[in-house]
Design a protein around this nucleic acid. Structure first.
Lengths: 341, 341
DNA sequence: CTGTTAGCGCCTTCAG
DNA sequence: CTGAAGGCGCTAACAG
């Protein structure tokens, strides 16, 4: 591999000139610049990242921190990671994955001490997350992504649950729905203060009044059979329900089945709108599910750019960025009142 | 951060002694060893990875290469990546993600030239993949993972489609099924020589004869509506079919619906077995799908350990490792002949 | 505008 | 068994 020295001697200049030509930190005359360019091309020179990191004390590597993935909002974690990697690459950074297990705090300490990364993106943050303390103490720049507990003092990027819910209500009301049911995630998550569950819960209650819509909410595990039973029960008790909002991709099969087993058609009799979901599952169900999908690209690009801004010390803006989900209309939602129920 | 120098002076030895104490390449007296240990503990010393990499010319970082994820075998790429990261970490390596776009060869060249990684895991390899040529020319150790085109000359880890199909036949035959249908992925993939599609196709034909089972195969896009139509048509033409094998997780909703719309119950009248699938979707459908699931843990751990072995120059074994899928019985498969069809 | 040079933190000969 | 010292490839003062 060609080194900066090779380039320097081929171009007939000193190594520092080459270095400055590369970084632009110091002006370089046009001629020298030209010969340096030529030399670099000829040698197919690419700076050695490791050496550069050692000298500059910046690795330009960021870590994305994943605790165990179990319940996840959807199936889209892969897209989240890939999108983050893509953004990082675009800005000249590399993304490493850190999977932490039980005693995350200790593991994290060790990883951090190796000084491999400049900053960290934290996924799946929970209330009183021990990782945050570690990061703060070591003064490692970090950013929280999604599903955070309410921690406004940290920089975080999250889904705008409030706006998403509002748009969902607007959409359903526009279609004539006046009686809706909301399938949230588990009550356990709610009690644990899990961000998405709590916030959508609050938003739902709020907009119910605001939009003058009748509605009820159910906390469900990601268990299709259970959701199916609940759906049937609800439809029996209150046949006037014309729409379901689901924040639980995995239980969609149960929802669909429950509705159909009560003899209702989707979307003629009952509509389904999935929120905070990912494209792939939603589009594969039958009927394909109309959904407010996460804007993964925006979410991750923002996370990466904000983190890099912090690393560059040019971070000044608000410590919070909320991204609303975007509507993708498919076949599961339509005008209310088609049937005589 | 404490450096090796700090440890050396605290322990009253030279830096090289500390270094050797760390690597074990050279014997160190018990006393010195002890004081070095103490010093390291006191200072919470962890070697700086970057400096170590520069000096040793080994970064202990490996890259996992992802082209665009579109059709994917399932929804489990996330588990694949996370599992790889976990394995890497366990062996003291770090995993970076490289997402390549269009002109992969060039992009890959650039990334490689930065000399950040020691080796590469290639995902989603296709026939005549340009990335392989690049890797070979630069002599970067690599390993192919899954879904490769037939390239026995490269080291690769893959799913054992043959064995998986055989076990699936054994399972179904044991349940009394004698007439099965196989939902493969798209014909386009087949024509393109896409490994999983071609191999399962061959295995299916082979075992049909071998097990004296009647059967037919369908190539389908990952489109539930289409699969539903095909299923209904098939059931109409040949009511004797008692079991479906699916290698297409995304089309499962269509399959289920198609069967039910023909008035058949699952699994009393018709069974479904999904192969090469991932746990999460399979378990969420209604009924929960019995499936031969990828052994992601084994697959990725093998990929990582084999790659590391190569890096250490202690690679001698066979260039191929096949891992069969493992059966998880759920609710979609049962004895044949329950109904009078 | 440019060159010289001292590190960055660690590994690894080379002497002893 | 141990220490001294020269890199690894690059950055960033420092001195023109």
């Amino acid at each position: 591999m060609a080194t900066i020295k090779d380039v320097a001697s081929l171009a007939g200049v000193s190594v520092s000139t080459v270095s400055y030509a590369l970084s632009g930190v110091r002006p370089v005359s046009a001629e020298k610049m030209a010969s340096i360019q030529t030399a670099m091309q000829e040698l197919r020179y690419q700076p050695n990242r490791i050496a550069r990191s050692l000298a500059s004390k910046r690795t330009r590597i960021i870590a994305i921190l994943f605790p165990k993935v179990e319940h996840g909002i959807g199936f889209s974690e892969i897209d989240l990671i890939l999108e983050a990697a893509k953004s990082a690459l675009r800005y000249g950074y590399q993304l490493v994955i850190w999977t932490l297990t039980a005693n995350s705090a200790e593991e994290l300490q060790e990883l951090l001490t190796q000084e491999l990364v400049d900053g960290v993106i934290l996924m799946e943050v929970h209330l009183g997350d021990p990782r945050i303390g570690v990061l703060k103490k070591r003064r490692v720049p970090f950013i929280l992504l999604g599903r955070d507990a309410d921690k406004p003092e940290e920089t975080f990027i999250d889904i705008d649950f409030f706006t998403t819910m509002m748009e969902c209500f607007t959409y359903l009301k526009g279609l004539g729905h006046r009686n809706v049911a909301f399938i949230n995630q588990s009550e356990k998550s709610f009690r644990a203060g899990y961000g998405p569950v709590v916030r959508t819960h609050e938003a739902f209650s709020y907009f119910l009044e605001n939009f003058e819509i009748k509605g009820r909410e159910f906390f469900c595990e990601s268990d299709s059979a259970q959701v199916c039973a609940i759906t049937e029960k609800l439809l029996a008790e209150d046949p006037g329900v014309t729409a379901f909002i689901s924040m639980n991709d995995a239980s969609l099969p149960g929802l669909i089945r429950g509705i159909e087993q009560r003899g209702r058609r989707i979307p003629q009799d009952v509509s389904i709108v999935s929120i905070v979901s990912s494209a792939r599952p939603a589009s594969n169900y039958l009927p394909a599910i109309t959904a407010f999908e996460m804007d993964i690209h925006t979410l991750m690009d923002l996370a990466v750019t904000q983190l890099i801004a912090k690393l560059d010390g040019r971070y000044a803006e608000l410590p919070e960025r909320l991204i609303a989900c975007v509507l993708r209309e498919r076949q599961s939602a339509g005008a209310a009142g088609g049937s005589g129920f």
